[in-house]
Simulated assay, not measured.
Amino acid sequence: MSKPYQRISIAECNEPLVAIPDDIFKINPHPYMSLGAPYGDRSPFFVRQGILEKLQKSQAYLQTMYPNYQIAIFDAYRPIPVQQFMVDYSFEQLAESKDLEVKDLTEEQKNSLMAEVMKFWAVPSHDPKMPPPHSTGAAIDVTLNISPVKCGGNIQEINMGSPIDEISDRSVPNYFASFRNAQAVGFNRDRELLNQVMTHSGFQRHPNEWWHFSYGDQLWAWISNEQLAIYGGVM
């Protein structure tokens, strides 16, 4: 199940992975770690040095417009075993949501479910020419929070219309663009705000996921019509 962007060549720039500092809000407990995803001695809250600098630029830009808003990190670096774990988990959850038992699935059902999963999850490939975006340290899943100044001490996550990782059409960035009710208009407005502040520093948004942004990986290069990616897999 390769994807079109995986045909982009990679000219690795060898930037290090660095920890996302504590002054950038991180969603804890980390959702995949809570499920038992096999990070080993790795942490999900790492990115390449250049990605951190762009994230900080986006955060600063957001706060020039909305001082009480902040970008919140849901997920960043993802080792390939974690990618495999989450693809398997998502497949099982999707089957369960359709009242299907995984052990009883026909091949046709398995293929149909996996096709839905792979609209949102990258192939957990060990091929250095086709690394999953999050395994490069160049992709991040983010949302928006309102900081304690406005919320009386409690950080409030902004409702974006669907949860991160939901396998449905609601996850498509412009899903709510044609709706006219006030709530849907608000969802679309906040998704566009997130896109505005992230693209301000050069990130590109995943076509199917309002929360996923990257810079320098194959998906970014494909969306940007660039000939080369600069971030390959970090094993």
Rank of each mutant, 00 (worst) to 15 (best):
A177G: 04
G186L: 04
E116G: 09
I146W: 00
D104L: 11
E192P: 07
S224N: 10
E192M: 14
Q156M: 02
E157V: 12
H134E: 01
I146V: 14
E108A: 07
N174P: 08
K150M: 05
K150L: 04
C151D: 00
Q218N: 10
P124F: 03
R205S: 04
S112P: 10
E157N: 08
L194H: 02
L113Q: 11
Q196P: 06
R170S: 09
S201F: 06
V142W: 08
W210C: 04
I158H: 05
V149Q: 01
N195D: 07
W222N: 10
V172Q: 05
F187T: 13
K129D: 14
D127H: 14
R189Q: 10
D165S: 10
D127T: 11
P207L: 03
I146R: 00
D190W: 12
V123L: 12
M198L: 09
M130Q: 12
L228Y: 13
R191Y: 13
Q183T: 15
K119I: 13
F203M: 07
I140S: 03
P148I: 00
Q183D: 13
P131T: 00
I155P: 01
L144K: 10
R180N: 11
F213E: 05
S162G: 03
S112E: 11
E107S: 09
G137L: 02
G152Q: 00
T199F: 09
V142E: 03
E192Q: 15
T143Y: 08
P124C: 01
D141P: 04
Q156I: 00
I167H: 05
N145L: 13
S224Y: 11
K129A: 13
M114V: 00
V197D: 02
S125T: 11
N225M: 06
N195H: 12
E108M: 02
S224P: 09
N111I: 01
D169V: 11
S214R: 10
D165V: 09
D165A: 06
G161H: 04
C151N: 07
F179K: 12
E226F: 02
L194Y: 03
W222V: 06
I223A: 03
F176N: 06
D165Y: 14
S214M: 14
S125H: 12
H126I: 10
G137I: 12
A139H: 07
V142K: 08
G137W: 09
S201K: 12
H206I: 15
W121A: 06
R191P: 14
F187G: 07
I158S: 01
Q183E: 13
S214W: 13
W121I: 08
E116W: 09
W211V: 09
W222L: 04
D190K: 15
N208H: 10
Q109F: 08
M130W: 03
A138L: 06
I167A: 03
S147C: 02
I223K: 08
E108D: 11
I223W: 07
G161I: 06
P124H: 04
E226M: 07
G152P: 01
A184H: 11
F176Q: 05
V123P: 09
I223D: 05
S171G: 08
R205Q: 15
E108Q: 12
R170M: 07
P128D: 01
R170L: 07
Y175K: 03
M160V: 02
Q196D: 06
